[in-house]
Design a protein around this nucleic acid. Structure first.
Lengths: 331, 331
DNA sequence: CTCCCGGATGTTTGCGTTAACATCACGCTC
DNA sequence: GAGCGTGATGTTAACGCAAACATCCGGGAG
């Protein structure tokens, strides 16, 4: 910076004013400084800037994996909105969804240059890690029920599941079977609860739950079990990938979809419109979730406190070709 | 830090020594300092640290989207290995795959606190953005052919495509049709080149290319066109999602897979084993790509220069149920 | 007993930036 | 024409930390 100042024949403070876009610099001076910057390849040192300002303009995102559609899409949206607000995103991967893994991530966190953190995981794992968040670092949580302790942003899992079940009931199915996700996922639990409640409210029987782990393979295994239940005519899968597995299992067992069995998924991943048949599913607005996360976190950082509470992003049914009235097998 | 020093009854330098793990601090003193740190919730200011050390311990990853399996898996691997080396990852999303978008990302880059950058995109887009990388910032590129200017790490696209085509030829197919990805993708172009060359080397006819855009939908449209070609018995899709679309198109047109038509994909996404039928595909080792990226970049940062050059990560065929000899339709 | 040496700890300084204050020149008013 | 205000620019200091150097202490050699 001193070099730039010297070359431009001004003081370093004037260089600073130019590079931060402060007013009160005459145009001719400004151009000289800009020229000197270019010539010397000057680039402000963000560490020094952060040191002086006391903030990093960076948000941390802590999560287990980018392998699920939901996580990667949410992170992408977060990164986009954060960039728009002048914030960068630092990824903090947790090695494994265990206490040790979380602990490791949070110890690294202490060293990190972030102004706030978005946590994408069930919050009881944080508790297990006897969460001592660095003071001054704000938090927003996704996929959790910690609405009484931290601000939470999430898809309206319950309403989404309710819509899925209602859709199947309205088509005339007696009841709806369910393939759930892993027990440690809050989203999965919420969807299962809502499925059960919706059936109960409609006075229907609640069939036993098939447990999966989000993967298509686990959906396939669940589908094999379900195909052996002759009275199973409608299934609500907790995500699209497990629905894909169901589709294959029913196909292999000669149970046509939607003729013999109707299937609804959750997420509306891009591929789901190309399943065989195209999948009826519950659309999640990951971009909106990301946006609300960043918005909430920045509001905290800027000291416009909101306190704990939950923001629910609505879902909507996307009806494609995997659902039909029961017993509508063609031919 | 001064507060901690006061509370522990030592100088701030001793606190610094403790927090950086320097030797030459007697155990009893160390414990006192540690206790004071805990009591005050002290956390070293990484901006100041970075300022003093002249490095940020952060790597930037610049890419268009996390929506493709390859990108998100690669980023995940990068983040994991970087963490292991004590580096954090900053995500730099590019709004759109246009010159403007890239330009915007690189202007933001100037402000960013990174020691090196991993670029996941075709490098000619960088050129378009008249790339003036901040001096002192190292670069590694993925999905590009810039091996003469930057170090490049990539999947061995050509060999993967060759394996796919050979597999189909060895099953007895006369030739292999191809659904390619978007023209601006280097990976896609490489796969297409290798497909063509392999056919030529085997003295086979080279059918016209169907162009897709990586999405299952585009694969579906290509599949519709291909289903109308009676002599088409084998298709190599440039990724698994387009293969999924092909599967649906052929299914809807009553062309059985693999009885009437064999299909090979590329990527080996987790879902591909649950397609109908389970997909034969080329497995990419994204984790290895990520590891090599980080390794190469850190080597540059640590001044163990390697210069430009290309690291190719091998692929392997995963044979499932979507390929068979031609005309093997059951029944 | 003195001197010296080495290990433990303290003091000083500067990393690059910007806020706050100081200065300076110019033009306007009375 | 003296005084004053305004806007442009310069000077100083501090952000938190750690490298370099300074100091202090105790113990062993002579």
């Amino acid at each position: 910076m001193a070099d730039v100042a010297r070359l431009a024949g001004v003081s370093s403070q004037t260089v600073s004013r130019v590079s931060t876009g402060h007013p009160g610099v005459v145009e001719s001076t400004r151009q000289q400084v800009l020229a000197a910057m270019r010539q010397l390849g000057y680039r402000p040192n963000s560490a020094a800037r952060a040191l002086k300002r006391g903030e990093f303009r960076t948000l941390g995102v802590i999560l287990f994996t980018l392998a699920t559609t939901g996580n990667s899409r949410t992170v992408e949206a977060i990164a986009g909105y954060a960039a728009k607000e002048g914030y960068a995103i630092t990824l903090i991967p947790v090695a494994a969804p265990t206490q040790d893994g979380v602990l490791g991530a949070f110890s690294r966190l202490g060293e990190l240059a972030v102004d706030g953190i978005i946590v994408i995981m069930e919050v009881h794992l944080l508790d297990a890690a006897n969460l001592n968040l660095p003071p001054g670092v704000q938090v927003v949580v996704v996929d959790s029920d910690a609405g009484d302790r931290y601000p939470v942003v999430d898809t309206d899992q319950a309403d989404g599941a309710r819509q899925a079940v209602r859709h199947l009931l309205e088509l005339g199915h007696e009841t709806v079977w369910h393939v759930t996700g892993p027990a440690e996922s809050f989203a999965s639990e919420r969807r299962t609860q809502a499925w059960r409640r919706t059936l109960l409210e409609a006075g229907r029987a609640v069939p036993p739950v098939q447990r999966g782990d989000w993967t298509a393979d686990s959906g396939y295994r669940a589908g094999l079990a379900l195909a052996a239940e002759p009275e199973c005519t409608a299934v609500f899968a907790a995500n699209d990938q497990m629905a894909l597995g169901l589709l294959r299992a029913f196909h292999e067992r000669g149970r046509t979809v939607p003729g013999d069995v109707s299937i609804v998924g959750f997420d509306d991943i891009p591929d789901s419109s190309s399943f065989i048949p195209p999948l009826t599913t519950v659309h999640q607005d990951f971009a909106e979730v990301g946006r609300r996360c960043v918005q909430g976190l920045l509001r905290q950082i800027r000291n416009e406190p909101e306190g704990p509470g939950t923001v629910l992003v609505p879902t909507r049914m996307v009806v494609r070709a995997s659902t039909a009235p029961p017993g509508s097998r063609r031919g």
